[in-house]
Design a protein around this nucleic acid. Structure first.
Lengths: 148, 148
DNA sequence: CTCCAAATGATAATTTTTATTATTTAGAAA
DNA sequence: TTTCTAAATAATAAAAATTATCATTTGGAG
């Protein structure tokens, strides 16, 4: 179930962004690639179909998406910044070995943390979002991570 | 209560690292500067007293510290990687406005999350550490953030 | 359709980080 | 204490990541 161009156009519109060809392509790549790609990886993945789109444009576009609330930056430790188009609250398992960033959706955990922070009353700080970085190593790099 | 050179020497020794002058200086700066400095900031802060220490050495040294378990990388979004010498489990409030990274120590929160993850049984993944990135904005950039 | 602010391409430049290699040094062993 | 050696550092250079500049193009409001 790939995202359609119309859906992307709508997303961009809702975010107050012009629906340019470049943005459509970058957004589709970001959603499609899954693995929380770096700007460079996005560039690579669109390169052959769209040779005219510059790496600088990819950077700018991803930046724009982050500003507009269409993507998040995810940090992995070393190396380039990586991006995530999934905006619903979720967490990340970060494998120091394979550099994979694996989504960890867990509504129960979300509310656990959210409620706790709420209770804490952090003053002079408007919370935008929070995510848990769970760092570790895959024991078998070739196998998937199974939760529960 | 500044950390003494002997204490640093001991820390380095325990981590299996030679206690070189450069490492002592970088470590002291890292602990002293508080604000989760970037390599560049560490370099700046030691520069005048230690003009012979190269930026490359600062990078290498910080890297070595991370490998050896004496420091952690902290990511702030944009900009360079920042480092944290505090190794006990704690979280970070990240102000998108001032770029500040503020420590958030909370033992109750730690065990809340730790216990939850334990219960979840994440397979094929050896957990090293976890930290919560709490992103937001200081309402008044000049005032402190108060918790509870 | 026209028009213009906004976006992009095509660089160039900067910033951040890593690599290379000759020289120096901490600390183990004599 | 002195000697010796593997490890660490300085002094680059280079690479990787990111941002800036500015002339040209374009989405979409009117």
């Amino acid at each position: 179930m790939e995202i359609s161009l119309d859906q992307i156009k709508e997303k961009l519109g809702n975010a107050g962004l012009k629906a340019t060809h470049q943005r459509m392509v970058v957004y589709r790549a970001l959603v499609g690639v899954k693995s929380h790609p770096s700007a460079d990886k996005v560039f690579d993945s669109i390169q052959s179909e769209n040779p005219s789109i510059t790496l600088a444009t990819v950077y700018n576009t991803l930046d724009t998406f982050v500003e507009a609330g269409l993507a998040k930056r995810v940090m992995s430790g070393k190396g380039p910044v990586r991006y995530d188009a999934r905006m619903d609250n979720h967490h990340h398992l970060i494998c120091s070995n394979t550099k994979e960033i694996i989504d960890f959706y867990d509504e129960e955990l979300n509310s656990l943390i959210r409620d706790y922070l709420q209770k804490k009353r952090i003053q002079n700080f408007e919370l935008a979002d929070m995510q848990l970085h769970i760092r570790g190593e895959k024991l078998n790099p070739n196998k998937e991570i199974r939760i529960k």
